[in-house]
Simulated scan of single mutants.
Amino acid sequence: MERTPLSVLIVDDEPLARLRLRSLIEANTEPPARVVGEAGDASAALALLQQTPCDLVLLDIAMPGRDGLGFADDLRRQPEPPLVVFVTAHADHALRAFEVDATDYLTKPVRRERLQAALLRAAERRVQRAESAPTGPVLVVSDRGRVLRVPAAEVIYLKAEQKYVTLCSGRGRWTLDDALADLEQRLGDGFLRVHRNAVVAVSAVRALERRGDDDGEEGWSVQMSNGDWLAVSRRQLTAVREVLAAQQRE
């Protein structure tokens, strides 16, 4: 079966360096790869990526404006960042390069064999990403500067609180700016609105009880798989009972 070539963006402020990399890539047959764009600095590269996503960025480090290390750090915060291979005249940035999850680190002048090895490594990582990518809906959250993808299958519940929505999953809790109704629509089947401020994963519902709230008033609440309790409105009480009854029948 014919493989999809690696799509490559070359980012280097030296035109001759870009020309050499392009010629090496075009002459390389294993793995197949094609250059989809060139840029002389980080700003131009970012603009290109917004129009033409790619699998791999061949990235210089010493450039005017944002340097390659900073730009690579920016890239990995994106929901679906490209792989990065650094191409530089200096070997003293190698440790820092791998701290930003670089796939490889090449020193100039780049040898054909080393570039091929880097492309092979990038092709392998592309396959690994595809195999581990979650199927179904995914919510994107920010976690201490990083961007994480939380598959719907990991979501326990969403609860609106003031201006934000708290996403609770088996991996942790995050705050989202999106409206609860928009998130509910994005998640699709398998989720149930139990209250005007809460949407739960049907598979994570464990119990339904009458409980007192913080004001001492008694009402119905549902217990989730992580032990948290969420209020259930009278309007949704029947639907929650049906969920629990279906679970007991299974």
Score class of each variant (00 low, 15 high):
Ala91Ile: 01
Arg186Leu: 11
Gly188Leu: 11
Ile61Phe: 01
Glu99Trp: 08
Val165Lys: 12
Val85Trp: 00
Asp213Ala: 08
Ala246Trp: 10
Asp228Ser: 08
Arg234Met: 02
Thr103Ala: 09
Ser221Asn: 03
Ser142Trp: 08
Asp101Cys: 00
Val243Thr: 08
Val127Leu: 15
Arg173Lys: 15
Gln185Lys: 15
Ser142Met: 07
Pro82Gly: 09
Val165Leu: 11
Arg96Phe: 00
Asn28Met: 02
Leu139Glu: 07
Arg235Pro: 05
Glu217Val: 13
Ala160Thr: 09
Ile156Glu: 00
Leu183Val: 04
Ala45Asp: 00
Ala201Trp: 02
Leu21Val: 09
Ala245Thr: 11
Arg196Cys: 04
Glu113Met: 01
Arg76Gly: 04
Arg121Met: 11
Glu131Phe: 06
Pro134Tyr: 08
Met224Asp: 09
Ala94Trp: 02
Glu218Thr: 14
Leu148Val: 07
Thr107Gly: 06
Phe86Lys: 02
Gly212Pro: 01
Val87Ala: 08
Leu176Gln: 12
Ile10Ser: 03
Phe71Gly: 07
Gly40Asp: 10
Phe71Cys: 12
Asp214Val: 14
Ser23Tyr: 02
Glu131Ser: 09
Leu244Trp: 01
Val147Ala: 12
Leu208Ala: 06
Asp12Trp: 10
Ser142Arg: 15
Ile156Thr: 06
Val243Tyr: 09
Leu69Gln: 06
Arg20Glu: 15
Arg234Pro: 03
Val87His: 05
Ala179Met: 00
Ser43Val: 08
Gly145Tyr: 10
Ala62Leu: 12
Val165Cys: 09
Tyr157Arg: 15
Ala27Phe: 02
Gln223Lys: 14
Pro137Gly: 09
Glu38Gly: 04
Leu83Val: 01
Thr52Ser: 08
Glu80Leu: 10
Gly172Met: 07
Leu237Gly: 13
Leu115Gly: 06
Leu49Cys: 08
Ala207Glu: 07
Gly172Arg: 10
Ala207Ile: 00
Thr107Trp: 04
Leu230Ala: 10
Ala201Asp: 02
Asn28Ala: 06
Ala39His: 03
Leu48Ser: 03
Lys163Ile: 05
Asp213Met: 09
Gln236Met: 03
Glu2Asn: 04
Glu184Met: 10
Thr166Cys: 03
Arg125Tyr: 09
Met1Trp: 03
Ala123Cys: 01
Gln51Met: 12
Glu161Phe: 07
Asp73Arg: 15
Asp215Ile: 00
Asp182Gly: 05
Ala117Trp: 02
Arg77Phe: 02
Tyr164Gln: 07
Val222Asp: 05
Val138Trp: 11
Tyr164Ser: 05
Asp214Trp: 11
Arg77Gly: 12
Val155Asn: 11
Pro82Met: 08
Glu242Phe: 01
Pro32His: 01
Leu237Met: 13
Val141His: 07
Leu115Gln: 06
Val8Ile: 13
Thr175Pro: 00
Leu120Trp: 01
Val87Ile: 11
Leu120Arg: 14
Asp74Cys: 06
Asp189Gln: 10
Asp92Ser: 13
Val110Cys: 02
Phe86Trp: 02
Leu58Pro: 01
